[in-house]
Design a protein around this nucleic acid. Sequence first.
RNA 1: GCCCUUGUAGCUCAGCUGGUAGAGCAAUUGAUUUGUAAUCAAUAGGUCCGCGGUUCGAGUCCGUGCGGGGGCACCA
Length: 639
Amino acid sequence: MTNITLPDGKTIRFEKPVTGSQVAEKISKSLAKQALIMSVNGELKDLYHIIKEDSSVKIITAKDPEGLEVIRHDAAHIMAMAVQELYPGTQVTIGPVIENGFYYDFARKEPFTSEDLNKIEKRMSEIVDKDVKTKREVWEREKAINHFKKIGEKYKAEIIEGIPKNEELSIYHHGETWHDLCRGPHLESSGKIGKAFKLTKVSGAYWRGDSKNEMLQRIYGTGWANQKDLDTYLKRIEEAEKRDHRKLGKEMNLFHFREESPGSVFWHEKGWSLFQKLVDYMRDRQKKAGYKEINTPEILDRSLWEKSGHWDKFGEHMYTSTTPDEKVFAIKPMNCPGCVQVFNQGLKSYRDLPLKMSEFGKVHRYEPSGALHGLMRVRAFTQDDAHIFCTEEQITEESLSVTNLILDIYKDLGFKNVILKYSDRPEIRVGDDKVWDKSEAALLKAVKATKLEYTINKGEGAFYGPKIEFVLRDAIGRDWQCGTLQVDLNLPERLGATFVDKDGSKKVPVMLHRALFGSLERFIGILIENYAGKLPFWISPLQIVVIPVSDEFDKYASEVVGKLRNVGLNCEVDLKNHNLNYKIREHSLSKVPVLLICGKKEVDSDSVTIRELDNKKQENMKLKDFIKKYSALNQASLN
RNA sequence: GCCCUUGUAGCUCAGCUGGUAGAGCAAUUGAUUUGUAAUCAAUAGGUCCGCGGUUCGAGUCCGUGCGGGGGCACCA
């Protein structure tokens, strides 16, 4: 007698032990058809697993996240099977499920080409059609190791050797010819995978993820429950490609990169205008929040970096320069040591704290060539940096005020969806554990006070203190880590920063590092992708183009531009010998938010006709009203 | 840094197995004077990423360097 309790609380009674398939069959024919795997007392099992005792069982279909995962996992297996059929001698390693799909890492001398991918995909399809049965076996450890060694799968053998001795080793057979070591569960047969998968790319990947090991070939695939989901996913990828800031940056004439300085931006007039607009805005916000802006040298003597600890901990990422007199300088990769030097000038009292010093510091970091990626990962960038010198007691309050400022600024720029990542002490760290206790608690208190969603990343703090990272979600659901707030229990002491406390004794202040955008360059990349290039009016580098209907109205159009420039709007007049349609198309494609059309009607009535981007409706307005309305829109606070 | 891939006009790209470069758009000039997403025509435009090699001959094949792209590793 086996009692099976279903998720809705109902119990089905079976005379004998049963399989998941039998349970599903009992519930309904359609469920039996859709069933992929099952969960028995919370453990995922194959459908053909025999349940011997009373259990609560949930039949899992493609609608459940676990179901989709199994589809992907099986697709990975079938891919490996197809690869080994097509390319004998290829060794398999690991093949997990990942977000949106799966991959499998192979060891093979010859590289896989994109044609190979097509072939493999086709073979996978054939295997699905054949609907080969899956069979699970439990093997004895030595047998498994010897077996895989014998058939030349040294990576598999190595994996098994690393599995704890008390763990059960299951081998899954797919059809008569292919098998793999796997924890499972798996689908009953290959037909259940369906055809909603696609191999997407090949790449290199280190064995066990360690760059000291040999490089394997990884084939990525995406897999879904049905064709519709696959299509939706592929569409989303396409949409992301359309928004690529590298493409848009070129099209919109914002910036370029070139061989002479990989990873450094050549800002064009329009891109720089956007950059400056953000800086102006930040300056204004920080001033109002009580920050004092400073600026420190780009090049500083080696000795300072040795004192700060950067030379040791960050040396391989630093650009250095030796002067003709053999002195070694480093180009700053961070602003903090410079800022502490400014703090150290003059005697500071507890009355000066918290002291907030901001700096738009340009830093250089020698990033590995393979890491570079448009504006998102560069070797030279500008931080909207600030350092807050305060007492331990002030950590929570200051952190909270930084957090509020960040959230408010993100909101102004159109990002309302923000989550926090809190990281506490890492294994290797400096400072007394008691101080860590205090600063972690203080920072966590601030995190909780925001009432925002947050994750705790254990042990991922900086070696000098705990930190919060601000992750914003963009218009198409991608997460970007931007701002950061770090408590520093180390640097002020190393660089001899002190203040005179109430009792007259000298104390070392706590330092908070914070950046809101993180890197201006990167943030601009995120902005471009978030808005697909259609930036909000107030930061748009070219806000308005005035178009005369014919050259008869060139003079009026030029006058309008003059007046708009006078109130600080970025605008151009288009006097080219093209017709109106052509100009509207051209400027719309280059994403100018507002076009003003001027013809006889407008000249006669001292007005302009407004056409906003992506809005075919036109509106005629007196020029002075237009100026009033749009110069107001030019302020962030009104957006 | 590592694996794969890629580099042709300002831009997007074509150029089969080696035989001295081609299109569309942009630019320039001329015509047209246009009322809401491409008016017509003509002209000009190239160290085919750099260096070396094979060859009678290299954009094309080989080697190497640099850059770009996709991943891996890295992101203090």
